[in-house]
């Protein structure tokens, strides 16, 4: 296991360096003067320009600039926002829990609905259930989720008036952020109706963000189940006279889950990308919306820092998935 971990790290470290080079060069590839872009000052006297240039280290050789940048990053300095003048990492830490909360809810939704749907489709292969489930899954897989979000807003929030349109919680409620997770914080606050409000705000974004992972998980579960169901040990289990529920639920499902777990892990990266659209539609104050807003505000320092942090988070999540996979399936460690 230790060697497996070392092998993964040997790949991860050069990738991280590459990612940091991209983030570093991004600001220098933009048309325009990087000093002006990073300081956010449009008109500058030559003296002021030289001063800021020196402050930001732009008067040093490019290699030294990169090493300085990397050194700063390793100490947690991802730059300072041009617009808010706050450190990028602080803003990230403030907004990240919102994205994590939404992504967790979406993945739970996708797993809880997707795996049973896939199992039913596989067990009843070729039946009307199978066709309906797989047809729906293909539609979900083809869904432009930004449109799906708008449709749900029209129907559920607009016509039926069941859920709020945007945000994380009703403005009526105010309590200090303890964990950053609105569902937990609202319970801790003890205010009546706060949890209900936070929950209602989560419903539509969860469905929208979970739709594509749900479709992928259902399809993957079905094909993994079909493969496992034709194995000898399943036939043996059936021959022993075990009930269908036991055969499918215990013998087959466990083995079919191995590829599905990888798929779920890979979906986490997809989630963070999907969060860009979902958060924009529902004005969800997470990192996806933060990045889109920064692109529009031309807050290049935030884009540069955010890009690097998000890539690092995804790489760590993928590493964790790999390690977990190595634990449940010892065959792939070598």
């Amino acid at each position: 296991m230790f060697r497996f971990l070392l092998g993964r790290l040997a790949v991860l470290i050069p990738t991280f360096i590459g990612v940091s080079i991209i983030a570093f060069s991004f600001i220098r590839l933009l048309p325009g003067d990087p000093v002006a872009l990073l300081s956010g000052e449009r008109v500058m006297s030559p003296e002021r320009h030289a001063e800021i240039s020196h402050q930001l280290g732009f008067d040093r050789p490019i290699v030294m600039q990169y090493l300085d940048y990397l050194w700063g990053v390793l100490q947690g300095d991802f730059g300072t926002s041009i617009v808010t003048k706050k450190p990028v990492i602080d803003q990230f830490m403030e907004l990240f829990p919102a994205t994590v909360e939404l992504s967790l809810c979406a993945i739970i939704f996708a797993v809880v609905v997707g795996i049973p749907a896939g199992v039913v489709a596989a067990v009843k292969r070729g039946s009307i259930f199978d066709q309906i489930i797989m047809g729906t899954a293909l539609i979900g897989f083809s869904m432009p989720i930004f449109w799906w979000g708008l449709l749900l807003i029209i129907v559920v929030s607009g016509i039926l008036q069941w859920t709020p349109v945007s945000g994380r919680i009703s403005l009526m409620f105010f309590f200090p952020s303890v964990t950053g997770f609105m569902l937990v914080d609202s319970l801790l606050s003890g205010q009546e109706g706060a949890f209900q409000s936070a929950f209602n705000h989560l419903i539509l974004p969860t469905i929208v963000l979970g739709t594509i992972p749900l479709a992928v998980i259902a399809r993957q579960t079905r094909s993994a189940m079909l493969e496992v169901l034709s194995e000898d040990y399943v036939r043996t289990a059936r021959a022993k006279g075990l009930s269908t529920f036991r055969v499918v639920g215990i013998h087959a499902l466990r083995n079919a889950m191995i590829p599905v777990v990888t798929t779920i892990g890979l979906q986490i990266g997809v989630m963070l990308a999907g969060a860009i659209l979902t958060e924009t539609i529902f004005s969800w104050p997470g990192i996806g919306k933060w990045m889109v807003d920064s692109v529009f505000r031309r807050d290049y320092a935030v884009i540069q820092g955010g890009l690097l942090i998000i890539a690092a988070v995804i790489m760590l999540v993928n590493l964790a998935v790999d390690l977990l996979y190595g634990l449940i399936n010892p065959r792939i460690r070598h």
Binding site: L29, I310, I314, M315
Partner: peptide
């Protein structure tokens, strides 16, 4: 393969968004 890993480390839509922000 390392270069491909680097591209894959970013969420694809985010990377495309930032690239378009650079290119216009």
């Amino acid at each position: 393969m390392r270069i491909m890993d680097i591209i894959l480390a970013f969420p694809s839509l985010l990377l495309a968004l930032v690239l378009v922000a650079v290119l216009g």
